[in-house]
Nucleic acid binder design. Sequence first.
RNA 1: UCCUGAGUAGCUCAGUGGUAGAGCGGUCGGCUGUUAACCGAUUGGUCGUAGGUUCGAGUCCUACCUCAGGAGCCA
Length: 462
Amino acid sequence: MTGSTSVKDALRSTAAVDSIYVQGWVRTRRDSKTFSFLELNDGSSLRNLQVIANDWLANYADVQRLATGASIAVRGKLIPSQGKGQSWEVIADDLTIIGPSDDTYPLQKKGHTPEFLREIAHLRPRSNLFGSVFRVRSRLAFAIHQFFQERDFVYVHTPIITASDCEGAGELFRITTIDATNPPRGGDGNIDYAKDFFARSTFLTVSGQLEAEAFACALKNVYTFGPTFRAENSNTSRHANEFWMIEPEMAFCDLTCNMDTAEELVKYLIRDIRENCPDEIELFGKFVDKELTARLEFVLDRPFQRISYTEAVELLLESGEKFEFPVEQGTNLQSEHERWLTEKHFKCPVTVFGYPKEIKPFYMRLNDDGKTVTAMDVLVPGIGEIVGGSQREERLDVLEANMRRHNLDPVEYKWYLDLRRYGTVPHSGFGLGFERMLMFVTGVSNIRDVIPFARTPGSAEF
RNA sequence: UCCUGAGUAGCUCAGUGGUAGAGCGGUCGGCUGUUAACCGAUUGGUCGUAGGUUCGAGUCCUACCUCAGGAGCCA
C-alpha cells in the first residue's frame, strides 16, 4: 500500500499528477478501438476511477479479457478527464493484473436485489449499496464514540460471557464446555452445571446494563458498545440473534435527563452521517428510500414528541382508527399502535414514558403512583422501537420488593443490590440498537442488510 | 413460533392442464472518449424437493425445504 493512492484521494486531486499508483477491483470494462475504459473501485468511496488502458500496453490482450471483479494495480498519469461524469482519470503506463475474475462472478453491472446479495454475503460489500452501508456503519460507530467521549463518558467493556440469566430480556445462548453426548448429572437427573467450565451456568450476554450500572456508580457517566446475543426465534426484518447495542448509564440522572440524552444522541448521529457520508446518503435516497433525506431533515428540525403511556393509550382510543389488536390501559402497545403514533399521528420520533409496572422488568424505578415505572421507549417511523431505557430503582427496599414480585431471588443479585446498599444514587440509562439506528439513517429496511454477516434463526453461514 | 405470499436460465420475471419464453448478463462480431453505452448474432433450464391426480403437470392436490412480508418477543 506504500506509495499507492486511494480512488477517493485521486478523485479529490486538485492538480494533475505525473505518476500515480492505484489499486482496486474492476467494476466494468468498455472497449474502444485502440484502448479500454476500466472503472476501478477500491472501496474508499462510492465513486470509481476511470482508467484508460491503451493498446500499446504490453499485456493489452489480457486487459481486454479483464472481467468484472478482477483486481489490478495501475501506474500512470492522473489527468483531467475528457468525458463527462468525472473530473479526473488515469492514463495507464503500466497495468498489473493481480487477480483475474471470470464470467461466473455473480455481481453484474446492473442492480441486484438485496435478497440475492444476501446469499453472497462475502461478495456483497463489493456492490455500491453494501459498500455504502458498511462505510456508513463504520462512521456511525465512530460517531457514537465521539458523542460520548466529547461528553466525558467512560467506555466500559462489560462481559460477553455472563451468569445473569434473568432480567426477562429474552432467551439466552448457553456457553458450555460440557460434552453434550455425556453430560455430568446431579442427583435429580438434570445436567449438573456446577461441573461446567465456570462452575455454574453461563450465557452470552443479552445486555451489559447491570454491569454498566456498577461502573456508573463509580465513574458517573459510562457507556458500553458491543455485541449482544438473544436466542429468540424471531423472524422479522428488525431482529437478529447477534447485534450491537449502545448502553449509556448515567449517575445522578433522572428520566428526563435520560430522554434528553437519547434524543440528543439520535440527532447527533443523524447529523454526523449526513455531514460525513453525503455520497452514501444520496445513493440511499435514490435507490433505497426516496423520502430518506426529507425524513432525516424533518427529524433534526424538531423535538421528539414526548407522551406518557397513559396519554398514548388515550390518543389511540380516541383515534377512531380500526386496529387489529384492541387498545387498552395496562397492556403493551402493539406494533400497529406504535406505528400509528409515529407514522400517522405525530409523523416524527416519539418518546413514550411511564409504562405500567406489570409489563416492565424489575430494575425500573417505581413511580409515586405505585402503578407505573420510569420506562421510556423512543419509537421512530418505519422501524419502531430504537431506544429502550429507564431510570433505575435506586431504593434498596423497593428494588428487593420488585424482585420478589418478578419471582427473582435477591440473594442471587447481591452484587447488584450492593450498589443500593452503599452510596446509592438516582441513575438512568438506555439501550440503542446499533443496527436499528443504522437502518434509520440509511433507509435500509432489513436488519440483515446492515450487518456484515447476519445471524438469524436457522442461518449462520459465512 | 404463527399468518400470508413466492420459488421457472447467472439476475429480474412472464408462462392460468397440451412443443420452456423475454429482458438483462455472459460469449462472439461491429461501432464508438465511453459512462448501467449502442447495433447484430449467440449461449443459456433437474420449472425448490418428494410424492400424488391426469392420456398429459411449470400449471391441480399433499408434505417438506428455502426466501420475503406481517405478528409476537425486543434493540
